[in-house]
Write a protein that binds this DNA or RNA. Structure first.
Length: 313
DNA sequence: ATAGGGTTAG
């Protein structure tokens, strides 16, 4: 029952039912479902997560691999990595998923270096990483931004003949871009047998933060002709690329076609890019007018973008 | 019997 509600994604209802269950004084003859723990993770509800953790500790039941992996994952994603690690270290048996959620938790809570240490360690322990592990390791390299590590991980992926699926490939595009080599990113992109809107957006973003706006823009029609529709992130990446390559007119045109042809409503990020685009080009008054015309809530990043432009000019 | 892990902006 509780698991079913959790699976349906109704976290609030799931927790309420779970509380009722506990309050009834029901005796747990089994652990709470990992699905409930997953619901805590997805709603970043650490309080509820700790309640469940406590129940597990007090139940006196033998350690269950699934429950523990879910708990490690939940703690990691809630950024209480010490608790995740403690649980992890106490587990007598660790399988592939246990190691993977620990790798992911470290990088999620800001210690990407430790992710890579764990990765080496799991291999030493004789646990073979799979594609999900590799996505997390690649993601850790992207966060670190260290090319030497990126090459090592790429080597590992090639040596072990991992299939370059959409998710792994996209993570690698991002990794190479953030480690400073957009051409390596492009090689991965070209080698991918399948690409989705996320892959295309990642490649566009990669050219964007390397200042190669024209190349980013060239990808857009290619993406469309391969039958992929852009989303809001695609447009953030495109406009960002324009603003960092002095392609003002192109950026303005994208911003209007985004709404007129692709029915993507501009959000705060799009406005920030547009303020940045005009600001970098010295069109400060237009940038201010745009901010004034906005009907959504403004944040410090938006104003910061305008202030940055004021400083330049 | 069933249950745990994955990609793009900022």
């Amino acid at each position: 029952m509780i698991g079913g509600i959790a699976k349906a994604g109704d976290h609030v209802n799931c927790f309420r039912t779970f509380r009722e269950f506990i309050n009834c004084g029901m005796v747990l003859d089994n652990y709470p479902s990992p699905l409930v723990i997953r619901a805590c993770r997805d709603s970043r509800d650490l309080i509820m997560g700790r309640v469940i953790h406590d129940i597990v500790l007090k139940s006196g039941l033998p350690v269950d691999l699934f429950v523990c992996a879910a708990l490690v994952d939940m703690h990691g994603k809630c950024k209480v990595i010490d608790d995740a690690r403690q649980l992890f270290d106490q587990m007598p048996k660790k399988d592939l998923v246990t190691w993977t959620v620990m790798v992911s938790g470290c990088e999620e809570s800001g210690n990407a270096n430790e992710s890579l240490v764990l990765f080496d360690w799991m291999i030493e322990e004789g646990v073979q990483p799979d594609k999900v592990t590799m996505v997390n390791v690649v993601y850790a390299c992207a966060k670190l931004g260290v090319m030497r590590k990126a090459r090592l991980v790429h080597d590992y992926i090639s040596r072990n003949k991992f299939f370059l699926n959409v998710i792994l490939g996209t993570a690698m595009i991002d990794m190479y871009a953030k480690c400073g080599n957009v051409d390596f990113a492009r090689e991965i992109f070209d080698a991918m047998p399948q690409k989705n809107v996320v892959s295309w957006s990642a490649m566009i973003a990669a050219y964007g933060y390397h200042g190669q706006g024209r190349k980013a823009l060239d990808l857009f029609p290619m993406m469309l002709s391969s039958g992929i529709s852009p989303n809001r992130i695609t447009f953030v990446s495109l406009i960002y690329a324009c603003s960092h390559a002095d392609l003002v007119e192109e950026g303005l045109q994208l911003f209007s076609s985004m709404q007129d042809y692709y029915a993507v409503a501009p959000d705060l990020k799009h406005y920030t890019c547009m303020v940045d685009l005009r600001g970098r080009a010295g069109r400060l008054y237009e940038a201010l007018k745009l901010i004034e015309s906005m009907r959504i809530e403004k944040d410090e990043g938006l104003w910061g973008s305008l202030l940055g432009a004021c400083r330049i000019y």
